[in-house]
Amino acid sequence: MADTSTRLLDGPRGPKPKSNFSRRNIMLYGTLLLVAVYYAIPLYVMIVTSLKGLPEIRMGNIFSPPMEVTFEPWAKAWGSACTGLNCEGLSAYFWNSVKITVPSVIASIIIASVNGYALANWRFKGANVFFTILIFGAFIPYQVMLYPIVIMLREMGLYGDLSGLIIVHTIFGMPILTLLFRNYFTSLPEELFKAARVDGAGFWGIYFRVLLPMSLPIFTVAVILQVTGIWNDFLFGVVYTGPDAYPMTVALNNIVNTTQGVTEYNVNMAATILTALVPLSIYFVSGKLFVRGIAAGAVKG
């Protein structure tokens, strides 16, 4: 028999060559690029402006890079910008936000994950009613509850305090987080839960030793949702805390809206970026896990 290679004729052979410049690719990457630029330009302008001195800003060209880089505005935004009457910058309010966000995120995730676990795996009496009420809660507009909660907090002596705001955030995170965890736990194989019961693990044993170790993606999603949601909150912060306990967003608003003197665009920009830094870095650090968690069950009914 002849050498097998002689049986190959001219023409297509092996893997089909892919063109990097096919019409489809140009459309796809063109669109992506356009969207990326659209979102990147404001950020670029903010960063550039925050590094310029006021005289340079007044020259007007907002897209040009700084001729003379200065970190003065950043220092001022952090340490000495005026929020209304006192001029201490954002630093104190940054710590307020941390003190609000960390406990609210931890508390809401712990409670919601146990709720979701109980709803998904231990069909207790009244579970459906409980779940319906919880989901219904997600659709009530915040405005309806704003004032009743003021009264409740005042009665409890927590109004104007950080702890009051923490409780409010924890409660308002409950519907969506419980739904998120319930759906994730429902998507895990039921036989795993049954096997653990046969193995003699109880309610907490199954939660901590079996389910928790396989739930990293969904916890990441929950952390991101809560950190960004609570950190970016303005309404609850302004309603339920007093001036000393304001979160960073409220302070930022006060800096930007200060009516005395000249508008320091560079300081405003720096303050804004500083405020956005926490959610931004959360996304950068855990973006991949976030996507995986979303795919794993967050969107599954």
């Binding site: 795993l192 049954k194 019961r197 030793r209 079996v210």
Partner: peptide, 20 residues
């Protein structure tokens, strides 16, 4: 009685091994 008190062992179709 609870499953663990019944003196049984159970094997499932999907194996149901604890993945971690």
């Amino acid at each position: 009685a609870e499953p663990s008190e019944r003196g049984i062992g159970m094997v499932f179709q999907s194996y149901a091994l604890y993945p971690q």
